[in-house]
Every structure is written in structure tokens, then in C-alpha cells.
Write a protein that binds this DNA or RNA. Structure first.
Lengths: 346, 346
DNA sequence: ATTAGCACTCAACATCAAAGAGTGCTAATG
DNA sequence: CATTAGCACTCTTTGATGTTGAGTGCTAAT
């Protein structure tokens, strides 16, 4: 339940949050009154701050310290107070320039993006590649390696080519393999990988009866080729930037956070969970379910890729992040990535 | 210059080093005399320790503290005192079991090894894959993708299959591509990648005169295919184990070390530098040239791969590592990896 | 040659006082 | 009646001070 704040309350919460984001220290009433954000005496500000604290938006580390915003306070700030900065032309260009080079493969785009997000924010940049299962089938090739080994090369309509080595029981000639691929490339064309899997199983059922050795072999091979791991590709950059955040001066905290970074599945779940709707989504501190990450905020956005598939990108940093600057940056990066990928592979 | 130590001196240095490795704290004379390694009073030990300190093998953090071994002291210990433990049967089996699963690809072996080294040592495990340039050519395939795009699939005699997408100016038919590969597979067979590059350049010179369009196209394509980046593949695991070392409780140290871990080229140079001869090599603290790594020791060993190529593996940890246990483990791991790889691809 | 004994050094720890930042409450103010 | 100056109070931070204990080097006794 969100309690409403008076105009003045908002102003003061705003002042506390900005100051806290800038310094990382608890903010006192005097500090605010001096900075002429508002023309109020310290005493008046104290009164209001006490009210806001009662609502749960602020807290005091101890009696004689200033206030720091709670996660709820930051949430209120983000939802009801924050107006994000507009990016300058220069900044926009600098984002776009990242994708200027010709011949960027999907993997390059991912790497560049995570690095961009990290450099811009000075926190940790992360991007999850479009899900493997959503890739659209374009072509498969089988190359004979040694006696009983075949290399399957899967070429999606867009995205990274993947190889898989398959061991076979009987030896197959390159000629037979050509026939297989021709057949497969026909029946699987333009399906998503998920559908490819289904299709193969269906075809296999049909084949059972028809007993066509060639077809059933082809299907068996392709099934192996597509059984490959479904791990999401996660690209992460600037992990070590958090060393520079004063709130992570505690070894234990850093340790647990880094261990979390190592578990890619946590990151994937985290981002997936954050992204429900369209556009920028923000998760603040304890709002996410992962113990290890509850000192962090995540600013994330989905990016799209034609109608094919989509992934997620974002920035992970301390709850005291500069939302005002980072939100529009993440947003513009997501839009740019979407645009670039659409352009590259219609 | 290595100064010689008396029998007694050796015993005491040994005692100090063992104790220091076990506790990480400066070691006092009483501690040693109590532990009945030797039957000497604290006072006698003090005298000897003062001598050893003068030689530069021990140092005192401050007057009223015990001694810790210097890097030189550890070097002396490793060279002249240390007798490594023999691995138990169980330990050997546990190492071998890592490579038991069928169908391990090169990349799996690398991953498993780095993880093995890290788990066993409780420090950071690292392995550098055999250099790309040393791989032996087995086969190349060209797959037509879209109008002006060709996928080159390079299959080395052993090692990881690599793809490269090549943009061409003219459209080439799959039929032509087949001819290319047939030609290339013939002339390049069994060369190392380095030699492949040379050969292509030579052939191109010859071709210039003969003006055979087909051949010159094939050569141009293959040149592009093999121009790919020569980055060494580095597999590293257990980076975060060093959080548990008391000597890395200082944020700054951890920070610089991790930044070094991120720069793969430092790691490659470091390992390459350590490995000069055969067998286990050890670099202690300041013996290596990289500022960021001078609080660390590296225990490394080359591994071989038939006559084809070889790489390096090892453990990075604090100078106060358990050399006695880790040295034989690294050694046995290197031997096992060599054996496995030889068996897999003769 | 070895060692017990002793004076000495110095980090680590605890104790204590003072300083300073910030608060909440009350009474005065426009 | 909202605002604010003033003040007593709280609690962290800092620095000074003293104490403890581990460890040393030296000397004299064994």
C-alpha cells in the first residue's frame, strides 16, 4: 500500500534521496536546509522527516544520525517523484557509435552492449542473449569428420552458428548426409527451434510406420543436433566496479554478491523476473527474491528482435544508484540494440 | 646468490615455513620449540632465526612479532627443503575420474581441469588451451548462407571446431564451394595452422601468374577463414576462493588482483613465463614481473598433446600456499590431461 | 654450545573523555 | 497556526591513555 505524500513531503524525500545518492551518507536536516532546495528551516524539515519516517520511507541508522531512504522510500521516489534526465545528443551518438562497425556478429553485439552498459553506468552491465529456443531455423549442415563422427552445423536465421559433434553407430557417407540436410532444410524451414523439436518428434512418429531408413536416420541425427544445452548466454561486464561503491566495503557482502554473479541462472531468473511488461523495469533492493542481491537494484529493459525473439539487458548496482541518469541510458541502449538487430536481420 | 644453510638452519626454516603456511601468522621462537619438531629451547632457536633473517630468508613485521618467510626464504624452502607428498591412490583416481565421461570435447576437458585444479587446491585453477596456431589442419568446409555470405567451418585434427562468417563480393554457388574445399583439403592436409597461413600466401603468389579464377577464389576465402583472432583460450575457475585467504582481507589488494584476472593476456604471459623447461615450475611472489600478482605464487606445469601442441595449467594462490600438497597435484593433473588428450586424438 | 632469565619493544585491546552531528521537544514569533 | 530558534539529549567518532602479552636480543649461568 502506497501512502500519499504532501507536496512538501515529496520535495523533502526528493532532497534526501538525491543527497543520499550523491554521498552515500545519512542525510541530516541541516544539510538539506542549507542546500536551498527549499526555503525551510532545519526544524521544519525535521518535523516532516519524522512523518515520512513513520510512513516507512526513511530510516535512521541510529538516533543521532541523519536519515537514509528505505527500499520503499526509493520505490516511492522512482514511481512518483523521479523525472529522468533526457540524454544529450552526444550521449545518444556515443551509444549508437558502439554498433557502427560493420560485420558485428550477434556475439559481438552482446559483448559490446554489456561493456557499454557497464562503462556508462560505472556499475555492472548485463545482457542476456535471445533464447536459443526462439531462434528461427534457417539451415542445417552435416559434415563428415571421421568414421563415426559427424559435425552438425546449425545456422539460425539470425544469431550465432552452433556446432555439435555427433557420434553415430553406422558410418554415413557425405552423400547421404547431403540428402539428409536437403530433406531437413525443407521440412524445418522457418520454424522456431522449439517448434523444430516438436516437428522432429512428430515426423519420427510418422516415420516409424513408413520405415524409410534414410528419413529416420536424418531425423535421428537432427534430434541429436538439437538436443544441445539450452543454457542462456549471459554477458556481464564491469563486475569489479562494485569494489568502488562504499556500501560494498564489507568483504562478506562482496563475497556473496560475487558468488551470485557466478551463478548465471540466478542472473537469468532475476532479469526474467524483473521484466514483465514493456519498457524499463526497476527492482529495488529487497524487492527481488534473491538474498544475495538484496543490496542491489536492477534497472532492466527487454529488447526485441523483429518478431523472432527477445532478451533482456540492464544494469546492476547498489540501491543508491543514479536512477535519473541510468534509466534513460538503459532505455536508449535497449532501443538501439533492438533497432540494430532488426536492421541486421530482417 | 643462494647462501647455504646449516642442517639446523634448514630445520628451523622448515619449521617456520610450515607453521606460517598453516596459520598465516608470524611465527615465534616459542611456538617452534614447543611443537617438538626439534629439541631446542626457544633461545637457541632465536639465535638461529636471527642468522637466517640476516641472510634474507626471514623477516619481521615489527620488533615484537614473530618471523615470516620472505619470498627468497620460500624459494629456498621450495628448492632445497621441500619434499612433496606422494598422492594417495584415492586422490589419483579422483583426478582420473574427472576425465572418465565419454565424449568430452576439448572445451569440456579445459573446463573440467580448471575446476579440478581449483577444487583440489582451494585456490584459483587455470589452464590455457593449446595455441590455435599449433592446431593441425584436418578439414575445412564452406557453407553458403545468404547471397554474399559464406560460413567457413574449420575442423582441426583435434580441438574445437571454429566457425567464421565471410562476406564475399560475388555470389558463389554451393557447387563452387565444394570444389574449393576439395582443393584446399588436399593441399593443406596435416599442416599446422601456422604453416597453413604460409602455404596459402605462397600458393597465392603462384596463382597470380596462372590466373585460375577458381583457385584464387578458394585461396582468398581460406585466407579470410584463417585470419581469425589468435586469442588464447584461458579457462579459469575458483577466482573467488581467494576471498577466503586472510592475506587478502584488504580491499585494495583484492581489487587489483581481480583486475589482473580480467586481463587474460597477463595470465597468459604469466604462465608462459613461468614455463620454461619441463615439469612443474613455481613462481613465488615478486619473482614474477606483474605488479598485480606479486602477492601470489603460481605452480604451473606444461601439458602435451602428442606432438601437436601443448598448453599450460596451474594454480594461482597466495605465496603461503601448501606447496607440499599442491605441487604433486598439479603435476599429476598435467600428466593425466596429457594422457587423456593423447588417447583421444592420436 | 645451550639455555634460563630478564629488560625491552611494540601491536593490540580496552577504557575514557571530548567533540560533533543530528535529533525531538518546547516556547517564542510573525 | 505554521514556522523556527533554542536547548537538552543521544549516540557515533576520534583520540588519548594505560595495560597486556607476545616476542625479541642480550647476558650470564650451566
Amino acid at each position: 500500500m502506497v501512502e500519499r505524500l504532501s507536496k512538501r513531503g515529496k520535495n523533502i524525500l526528493q532532497a534526501v534521496v538525491s543527497e543520499y545518492i550523491a554521498t552515500g551518507e545519512p542525510v541530516g536536516s541541516r544539510t538539506i536546509s542549507k542546500k536551498q532546495y527549499l526555503d525551510l528551516s532545519a526544524a521544519s524539515i525535521r518535523n516532516v522527516m519524522a512523518d515520512i519516517e513513520e510512513m516507512g520511507y526513511l530510516s535512521q541508522p541510529h538516533t543521532s544520525a541523519g536519515r537514509i531512504p528505505t527500499d520503499r522510500g526509493l520505490r516511492y521516489y522512482v514511481d512518483c517523484i523521479l523525472t529522468v534526465r533526457k540524454l544529450t545528443k552526444k550521449e545518444k551518438q556515443s551509444i549508437e557509435r558502439t554498433y557502427r562497425p560493420q560485420n558485428l556478429q550477434l556475439i559481438d553485439i552482446m559483448k559490446e552492449t554489456s561493456s557499454l552498459l557497464s562503462n556508462f553506468s560505472q556499475y555492472t552491465g548485463i545482457i542476456i542473449a535471445p533464447k536459443f529456443g526462439n531462434m528461427i531455423f534457417e539451415q542445417i549442415e552435416f559434415v563428415k569428420l571421421r568414421k563415426n563422427q559427424i559435425l552438425a552445423v546449425f545456422i539460425p536465421k539470425a544469431g550465432t552458428v552452433r556446432n555439435k559433434i555427433i557420434e553415430t553407430e553406422e558410418e554415413l557417407s557425405q552423400d547421404e548426409l547431403h540428402k539428409f540436410t536437403k530433406y531437413l532444410n525443407e521440412i524445418l524451414s522457418d520454424l522456431s527451434l522449439k517448434d523444430v523439436r516438436k516437428k522432429i518428434i512428430n515426423e519420427m512418429k510418422k516415420e516409424k510406420n513408413m520405415c524409410n531408413w534414410l528419413l529416420s536416420q536424418a531425423l535421428r541425427l537432427s534430434q541429436e543436433a538439437f538436443s544441445s544445452d539450452m543454457d542462456d548466454d549471459v554477458f556481464i561486464d564491469g563486475k569489479f566496479n562494485i569494489f568502488d561503491c562504499p556500501e560494498f566495503c564489507d568483504m562478506e557482502k562482496v563475497k556473496t554478491l560475487f558468488r551470485a554473479f557466478e551463478k548465471k541462472n540466478i542472473l537469468v531468473k532475476l532479469l526474467d523476473q524483473v521484466i514483465q511488461g514493456e519498457g524499463i523495469q526497476i527492482s529495488i533492493g529487497t524487492e527481488n527474491q534473491f538474498q544475495e542481491m538484496q543490496e542491489c537494484s536492477i534497472i532492466a529493459s527487454p529488447y526485441t528482435w523483429g518478431e523472432y525473439a527477445s532478451g533482456t539487458l540492464g544494469v546492476i548496482g547498489p540501491t543508491r544508484m543514479n536512477y535519473c541518469d541510468i534509466v534513460p541510458m538503459v532505455d536508449y541502449t535497449a532501443r538501439t540494440v533492438s533497432k540494430i538487430m532488426d536492421a541486421k536481420y530482417q
